[in-house]
Design a protein around this nucleic acid. Structure first.
Length: 352
DNA sequence: AAGGCGGGGTT
DNA sequence: AACCCAGCCTT
């Protein structure tokens, strides 16, 4: 253990830590819940969702008894929806296989859906004070700078390298606080851009600070290119009723609801859209009108969505069995929908 | 080892 | 526009 590092670190932590609700408990359920929500998610964004889930599901048994639709509805807007689906699977497994009590062996914990090395280490260190170093984006950044390591952090080699170092410097007497401290330090002091190294407690010992390499660490392999997609949403409207369906494919937004979707390689003209809808749905359209266009940005995709309002003399067509009719109002309140769809429902056009 | 998965904040 | 966030799962 690097005594000087962790003592300084924890002293800093006690003076600077944010008051966060999941730090006031050693209840493994609440800690697990917070960790799943916080995966690839900032504290400020995840906090209201954490409060909401704790209110709805005070125990893991309550959560295990929920439906996937209910979980996803509460998860709406947080992104990476597989976390919500896996969370339900995990809760059911803990209730059925472990009598509702989280396992305390890391090997067992890592088998649970949605729990990888980071989350397993976080749960066991925070809830049971076990000595498992956590490795998240913050820790990679702090260690790469402090020790001047330029191994690209998004590689298997980096995981091995940094996991070993994190294990070398962890405070075996207080792994819970040590892990909290190093992540908080990365989030508040050792920030990705323009960290204030002049005010840093490690200003004299950090390799990157001493050698003026802070801007160049950590090293990360380049991200994939973005992909463009064109979505045509068919908004049927009749007596304030519309048609929706659940996304089932292995694609974005799995398990969420949306209008019938026609994805095309390029944007469609009015008559092209009409022809396709008529053949697709065996329906004579009296009117087709593009009522909105929304550009929606995801991390690896840009979605150009056109919303087409269609009206017809009758809606008794042979619709796909997986589409169903709902009140337009209910779509926004009772179903888990992508942010793109809520943007459309909130647009001034739909308000009238 | 690489690809895929959201949404929002910061720079 | 690029980068990042208390990462994980599948192929």
């Amino acid at each position: 253990m690097n005594y000087s590092f962790t003592v300084t670190l924890q002293k800093w932590y006690i003076n600077h830590k944010r008051p966060l609700p999941w730090r006031d408990t050693s209840n493994p359920y609440l800690i697990w819940l917070s960790e799943i929500i916080l995966q690839q998610t900032r504290v400020s964004q995840g906090l209201p969702y954490y409060e909401r889930f704790v209110m709805h599901f005070p125990t893991i048994t309550d959560l295990a008894n929920a439906s996937e639709d209910e979980i996803l509805r509460l998860w709406q807007g947080l992104g990476y929806y597989s976390r919500g689906r896996n969370m339900l699977k995990c809760a059911k497994l803990v209730v059925s296989n472990y009598n509702g009590a989280f396992p305390t062996e890391i090997k067992e914990v890592k088998k649970l859906p949605g729990i990888g090395d980071y989350t397993a280490s976080a749960i066991l260190s925070f809830a049971f004070n076990q000595v498992h170093p956590v490795l998240d984006g913050n820790v990679y950044r702090v260690l790469s700078r402090y020790y001047g390591i330029d191994t690209p952090i998004n590689t298997p080699l980096a995981f091995k390298t940094f996991k070993r170092i994190a294990g070398d410097i962890i405070d075996v007497k207080n792994p819970a606080q040590h892990n909290q401290a190093i992540m908080e330090f990365g989030a508040l002091q050792c920030t990705p851009k323009n960290p204030d190294c002049m005010s840093c407690v490690f200003n004299e010992t950090c390799v990157a600070a001493r050698e003026d390499k802070v801007q160049h660490l950590p090293v990360k392999l380049k991200a994939r290119a973005k992909r463009n997609r064109h979505f045509n949403y068919i908004v049927f409207l009749s007596n304030n009723q519309t048609l929706i369906k659940k996304r089932m494919a292995k694609d974005i937004w799995q398990g969420l609801f949306e209008f019938p979707l026609l994805e095309t390689a390029q944007p469609l003209e009015n008559d092209e859209l009409a022809k396709t809808v008529e053949s697709e749905y065996g329906l004579a359209l009296s009117q087709v009108q593009k009522v909105d266009s929304i550009k929606h940005l995801l991390t690896h995709q840009t979605i150009y969505a056109d919303f087409w309002l269609v009206t017809s003399p009758h809606f008794d067509f042979n619709r796909n069995s997986d589409t169903f009719e709902v009140d337009l109002q209910a779509l926004g309140t009772d179903y888990a929908i992508p942010v793109l769809i809520s943007k459309f429902l909130e647009s001034p056009l739909m308000k009238v």
